[in-house]
Structure formats: structure tokens, C-alpha cells
């Protein structure tokens, strides 16, 4: 990776996407030694309302701190899918939750639909780790940060006593993508 890589994590307030962006940015900036900027935008509500977290990763200096031509969009609500998908750059990647995003439009980007919230709820037992499952999926898909980096960053931010559940959630995210990719390969045969 040489230039600018833009990630937008879009959803609603309370889903933990701002924290996911912080963990991702910290993994890139501190543990992988790249440059990263994380910004966020949210409404005045404590929960609900649009919420987004942008992470820019680059080997060069980062001027404009917001995503405007995204390499990767994660959508955890229909509104964020519909609102932001037009700003995904040609050939970019759109990851969405299959239970929360039903109206999916095709475009000049790769669509990856995975059951993020369902995995958090059923496999891990806590819907609130959907943000960490998302992180695992993003890292497995893109390699934008190393797994060592994201795990260090996650462990540094996880409240005491939640390390194990967060680690499991991250790995569940890795596996979601691996399984989805295997299915795609099998389907193509």
C-alpha cells in the first residue's frame, strides 16, 4: 500500500462504530507504524441517529481527514448503505450486515454480505460486540492492518474482564469472511 486508503464505518449511534474506528486507526498508526487519522460524525442523540467513523490509512502524510472516495464501506444500517454507497470508489469494497441491510444495489464495487449482528448475538452471546466482529471481518478481507496490530489495539482498549469475549468476537469476524469466501469459491465451481 502506498497511497491513501479510506474506510467508512457507517451505522447508528450505540453500535460502537466510533470505537471500532479508533481501534483500527490505532492499530495502523501505533502498531503497524503507518499514518492514520480517525474522525467521526454523529448526531446529538445518545443512541440512534446516523453515526459514522472514518479511518484514513496512508504511508504518506494525511491532509483531508474525512473519507470521500472510499476503498471500503461497512454498513450496519440500511440508511448508511444507501447514503454512502455512492461515494465508494470504483473497484472498492462494500461490507454489509445481511439482517440490517435488505435493499442492496449492485454497482462498480464488490459486495460482501455477512451476518455480523447475528454472529455477535448467537455465536458470542452479546450483540454489543458486533463492532468487533466487524473489525475482524474488515481485517480478514483487506489486510489493511496486521492481525497482530488489531489484536494489540483491541486488547489495549477492551475493558478489564472483557478481553476473552472481544478476542472471540474478533476471530468470529475473521471466520465469517473465510467462510463466505469459501462459499463463493464453491459456488463458482
Amino acid at each position: 500500500m502506498s497511497g491513501r486508503y479510506e474506510i467508512r464505518l457507517g451505522g447508528s449511534g450505540g453500535q460502537g462504530l466510533i470505537l471500532a474506528g479508533v481501534i483500527l486507526g490505532e492499530a495502523a498508526a501505533i502498531h503497524d507504524g503507518k499514518n492514520a487519522v480517525q474522525t467521526q460524525s454523529y448526531g446529538p442523540e445518545a443512541r440512534g441517529g446516523m453515526s459514522k467513523s472514518d479511518v484514513i490509512v496512508s504511508n504518506e502524510e494525511i491532509d483531508y481527514p474525512k473519507a470521500y472516495r472510499m476503498d471500503l464501506l461497512l454498513a450496519l444500517t440500511q440508511a448508511s448503505f444507501s447514503g454512502y454507497v455512492k461515494d465508494v470508489k470504483p473497484g472498492g469494497l462494500v461490507v454489509y450486515d445481511t439482517s440490517l441491510v435488505r435493499d442492496v444495489c449492485e454497482g462498480n464495487y464488490r459486495l460482501v454480505g455477512i451476518p455480523i449482528v447475528e454472529t455477535a448475538t448467537r455465536a458470542i452471546g452479546k450483540s454489543m460486540v458486533a463492532n468487533v466482529v466487524s473489525l475482524g471481518a474488515i481485517v480478514e478481507l483487506t489486510g489493511i492492518v496486521s492481525k497482530e496490530a488489531v489484536e494489540k489495539s483491541l486488547m489495549g482498549r477492551a475493558p478489564r474482564g472483557t478481553e476473552e469475549i472481544n478476542r472471540r468476537a474478533l476471530h468470529a469476524g475473521y471466520d465469517l469472511v473465510k467462510n463466505a469466501e469459501q462459499k463463493t469459491t464453491a459456488g463458482n465451481r
Binding site: 479508533v22 486507526g25 490505532e26 498508526a29 501505533i30 499514518n35 492514520a36 487519522v37 480517525q38 474522525t39 467521526q40 494525511i62 481527514p65 474525512k66
Partner: peptide, 9 residues
């Protein structure tokens, strides 16, 4: 707000 809330190294 952007500079205040932005995270960087």
C-alpha cells in the same frame, strides 16, 4: 470540532 475530535498520532 474536527480537530478536537480527530484522532492522530
Amino acid at each position: 470540532e474536527i480537530v478536537g475530535h480527530m484522532r492522530e498520532k
